[in-house]
Design a protein around this nucleic acid. Sequence first.
DNA 1: GAAACGTGGAA
DNA 2: TTTCCAAGTTT
Length: 372
Amino acid sequence: MSLKSAPKAKSEPSQPETASRPIALLQWYDRHRRRLPWRAAPGEASDPYCVWLSEIMLQQTTVKAVGPYFEKFVARWPDVTALGSASLDDVLRMWAGLGYYSRARNLYACAVAVTREHGGSFPDTEESLRALPGIGPYTAAAIAAIAFDRHTMPVDGNIERVVSRLFAVEEELPQAKSLIQQLAATLLANSRAGDSAQALMDLGASICTPKKPACSLCPFSADCTARALGTQETFPRKAPKKSGTLRRGAAFVVTRGGELLVRSRPEKGLLGGMTEVPGSDWLAGQEDATAKGQAPAMKGLSRWQRKVGVVTHVFTHFPLELVVYTAKAEARTRAPEGMRWVPIATLSGEALPNVMRKVIAHALAPASGRSS
DNA sequence: GAAACGTGGAA
DNA sequence: TTTCCAAGTTT
């Protein structure tokens, strides 16, 4: 640790000691840091692979959701080279359920690039990291700071919140990003850049929360402009986001004994490359009849049974409502072009996004009602 | 710069 | 129930 000796505390007026913020932050961190599966123990060196893998998984995703996925990945692929030698399908299957599936493709592409172009070791500068797939400005800075102790401050949603409150930044996001970046950099200690960043993230996650921040426990409590104003919860400023129009569609669940008819979605776009049951387009204002018209044309099929109720799912940019039709296929019925049969028993290992798991659960459940 | 891109949990 | 959001990146 390179903490300076405590500032002479004598009869200083209680003016914030700006220069000591990074020190106060690290002191708080040393007492209150979270234990996380991907985090090195105090004094231990970080594993760049673990740092990278966790950072990718944590993009727009909660610590709680990431935990099991991180453990699964590390157990199966202990290092970048192992991951780079896997198949994309295996990676997508392991990622299924975590969301934002382009991350899984980029994760794999990045592992391949590190393996083949960097000899299996992550590059250690922000710029070279930034050039890798799936690594943007935040993640490049985070890896550089946490794994390689580079003097840089990554700015994520937590840090935006802490900093915008500490300095009462009135400008709205995302326009305020540049200003917040500059202000956040003033909180970097001369050494321990990675700890400075993680300290700010922990502070944002556990103390300086979006709602009801625990200001009394904050190392910056006496120093925080928003807190002094009593306006903590109003930061960061941002424009309200719009919800998106409801889209409707139909899903077709065809079984052949203990097997289910599935196909893969196009590699680009929503749920790219993931497995799905055949279905109609998902369109705003679409009628059920229109959607049903897009059922797969197959011989040897029973009548379509419309399941009572609908499956609803909410994506980031639109809500979706799916009606579900089921049908049974005779033994040895061929799967239509581009589709395949998979055993229902092995569905848990498929690259099925959660919306499709809902559809299948709804279709296979005894007649009842809705599903959410 | 705006829009696309998943999911589940908390208030 | 509804709204907001969680360690952002890509196009």
